[in-house]
Nucleic acid binder design. Structure first.
Lengths: 336, 336
DNA sequence: AAGATCTGAGAAAGCGTTTTCTCAAACCGT
DNA sequence: ACGGTTTGAGAAAACGCTTTCTCAGATCTT
């Protein structure tokens, strides 16, 4: 009884009836259409608030052919970088009355396409962060996802993209180490299929050709704290004194492993991270890293998406963000 | 031209027409309704894949009166704890084919009600994390949000809730410090309007009445890294040797400020955090803290929500998670 | 003051599905 | 072979809005 009585949400027709107008008029009033006489509009509004009428979004969505929602697909909600991007997108989108549907592919890249497609169908557009997806798959997927904004990826598809110049960043970090006198460097690499890792490797390659006196070893690594921790022995075995970690997470893992082994950072070896996640400033020693403005990336991703949705001109369809290095305590002069 | 030609997505009627059947039959096939003859079903399926037909979710949502989406409202997407809860919810929900819409109230608690209501309208249910909302507001809001699952809050509303026994956790931490010989404790408190802070305070109160010989000062604090950092002077001025920080973030901020001041942790003062966020294990010294299984909280929140949605029995409508303390290097014997 | 132009609001046609009705054809028992 | 069940699929009615179409009445024209 209680159930049947309370329920059945108040709909537009209830308002129309009670206000003595047609559905169309209620709709017009609710949508701020000014072709309704002021007094009628007022009456409708009064009834609407009295009945606490809230338009059913699903109905609206269907009628308007849009959902005021965008999908954000991330490889891992546990990754601080994507968390920050997501946060940036979410806040910026919220400013414009849009909501965000998240799709966490759990690093299972085979899921990414499916998730992205599903998100696209449910939403007005998709912001895609798919660092592990192959170029081929991305090329095939992208055209089916419009409106689409790519984060840290580019492809032949004309969708706007936001990218970080990882190559530049890693070079700056390497230069910083070399400036400190390090001549034996090691890069604890990221996952093999990571697009941003490829960018770093390319950057290092150009760096090395410009610095013949410097030696660089590429060591297998990963992207997580644990990967960094596990790479400690290989890093030490390399004999390098300047260590470039794939990102802050691996740098932190490595740092902790080095601490455990009694290796002093930065006295014995210097260590750099990448991303400048929130916690990088609070390790001991604090991490020298290349700061990626992930929040901005997220925010701009929304800007681009908004332009796409309104089909306004996209000022710059390929925004690239330059990381800037922040020097903290984890790097110091090379030991003699 | 190109535009007009490509677009207009393939709908159920295209499939119906091409397969020579009615819309209803296509719908039945797509939904696995077995009242369709095998050969027809096969033909429909073939046409569907040929045309790459994917049902429009908005249409389905309207017809079915559900969206297969739940909303998660969090106070701040930048907060590691909520990130983890969100992740837990998202993954668990994804397993069951549900998606997650996020609503970040940006710590503006006046927005929370509105966001939550909006999320509820767009989704089939809401998981609400609203640590700062007043009890009164929550009591008023909760009944309008069903199906609702509350995280770290309870109210008269019969919605299931997942709570963490912060009172127990802080007592365990305090006991740990006392066991180490600390008799002068300080609690760097959380935000005044934080529900979980109140729980901690209550826990401390019962702890104190059971430990007459121990002295405890309550210091104003906050919930962020910066708050912790800023509280350093007050903490030192208190003369306490055992410091209970509101959470890991403030503990980390405090730790870093203590380092800056040359105060040795744990030789000079012992410090505890709360939550056991991912990074707590990697500070120097690593943080002694009370581990909150946030991922589980998220996962169980989904379980409860699922039960609500299927209106299955809710085994236990008020799950309380006991934090377990993990002792690391930030706590040690009281200095003599 | 008669025709032309505006205005404002109702009627009705979508939006893309699902699901209830309906009903012909196939099947059953006797 | 004939009424009584099943079965299977189409027609049509939701679902809750927005928006186009329409058209009566009010407002201008000259």
């Amino acid at each position: 009884m209680a159930r049947g009585t309370l329920n059945r949400r108040v709909g537009i027709s209830d308002v129309a009836e009670k206000a003595g107008v047609s559905l169309a008029t209620v709709s017009r009033v609710m949508n701020g259409n000014f072709t309704v006489a002021a007094d009628i509009a007022e009456r409708v509004r009064a009834v609407a608030t009295e009945l606490n009428y809230q338009p059913n979004p699903t109905g609206r969505n269907l009628a308007r052919g849009k959902t005021d929602t965008i999908g954000v697909v991330v490889p891992d909600l546990g990754n601080p970088t994507f968390q920050t991007v997501l946060r940036g997108v979410s806040r910026a989108a919220a400013q414009d009355g849009y909501r965000v549907l998240i799709a966490d592919s759990s690093e299972v890249s085979s899921e990414e396409s499916i998730l992205a497609g599903e998100a696209r169908r449910r939403c007005d557009g998709v912001v895609l962060c798919a660092p592990r997806m192959s170029d081929a798959e991305l090329a095939e997927l992208a055209p089916t996802l419009h409106p689409l904004v790519l984060v840290n990826r580019t492809t032949a598809d004309p969708s706007p993209s936001l990218t970080v110049d990882y190559g530049r960043g890693i070079q700056d970090l390497a230069a910083h180490l070399v400036d400190l006198g390090h001549t034996r460097l090691a890069f604890s690499a990221g996952p093999a299929n990571s697009a941003s890792n490829a960018l770093r490797l390319a950057g290092l390659e150009t760096f090395m050709s410009a610095h013949p006196g410097v030696e660089l070893q590429i060591l297998p690594g990963g992207s997580t704290f644990e990967d960094g921790h596990a790479s400690a022995d290989a890093v030490l075995a390399s004999g390098a004194t300047g260590i470039l970690a794939f990102n802050d997470l691996t740098a932190m893992g490595l740092l902790s492993a080095l601490n455990e082994r009694g290796v002093n950072v930065p006295a014995d070896v210097s260590l750099t991270g990448f991303d400048d996640i929130q916690f990088a400033a609070y390790t001991t020693p604090p991490l020298t890293t290349a700061a990626v403005p992930s929040m901005d990336v997220g925010e701009q991703a929304w800007r681009q998406m908004r332009a796409l949705l309104n089909d306004t001109d996209i000022p710059d369809p390929a925004l690239v963000f330059a990381p800037h290095i922040v020097v903290r305590g984890s790097t110091g002069p090379a030991p003699r």
